[in-house]
Design a protein around this nucleic acid. Structure first.
Length: 198
DNA sequence: CACCAGGCAAGTA
DNA sequence: TACTTGCATGGT
């Protein structure tokens, strides 16, 4: 439940801010489907304020919780019992849940073998010339799912490593680093060409 | 002070 | 269909 909520709150937002928002919800005793469904939107917005876009996210949380309460009795276990492809479509039908959020819920909250593609994944694949920067989500996802066994623990770690590498700036190319996978990619030229300025 | 973080939906042409 | 814009706090 908490992980699913976090998946929505972290949309385009630093995780540290999400932690504060989740702490607020915990402290208010709202990390529960029934109570979250009952709380007033204005109050929910105030609680998730630290995660940014708080009005939008309050609405998105409500949409998810309403679906969970209505169709699964507020039980995440019941949600996880649904067959994977259908469940993904179900999540995508919820307001505020796009591909990344749906896959994050499936993998991190439900433990189902879905590969999560995020900005870091895209950046790393792009830097290594493995995909066009503007390639569609499903295409990037297919690169992994077509070449790895469908194992949740593996996908979890794989994504964690992509995030770790993706967070790093492209190092100024080490003077001598033959065979380095980042060879020829780092430095000003690459920065100007195909990378957000961070 | 400038920039941006593990997106998404809605509006416009 | 393809682009653009709104949403908003907190850290570096």
């Amino acid at each position: 439940m908490e992980v699913a909520v976090g998946a929505i709150l972290t949309q385009n937002t630093a995780w540290a801010n999400v932690v504060r928002a989740i702490a607020n919800l915990e402290r208010a005793g709202l990390m529960d489907a029934r109570r979250l469904a009952a709380v007033r939107s204005a109050r929910l917005a105030a609680l998730v304020r630290p995660s940014g876009y708080y009005n939008v996210k309050a609405r998105r949380l409500k949409a998810f919780i309403t679906m969970l309460a209505r169709d699964y009795g507020g039980d995440m276990k019941a949600l996880a019992a649904e067959p994977l492809p259908a469940l993904r479509e179900k999540l995508l039908g919820v307001y505020g849940v796009g591909p990344e959020t749906a896959d994050s819920i499936l993998l991190y909250a439900l433990g189902l073998p879905t590969f999560v593609v995020d900005a870091y994944t895209r950046r790393v694949l792009s830097r290594h010339g493995l995909a066009a920067p503007e390639a569609p989500y499903d295409e990037l996802q297919a690169l992994f799912t077509n070449n790895l066994p469908a194992d949740a623990a593996l996908f979890n770690q794989y994504h964690a490593l992509l995030v770790q590498v993706g967070k790093e700036r492209c190092r100024p190319r080490a003077p001598k680093c033959p065979g380095c996978p980042l060879e020829g990619i780092g430095g000003k030229a690459a920065d100007a060409g195909r990378r957000p300025t961070n």
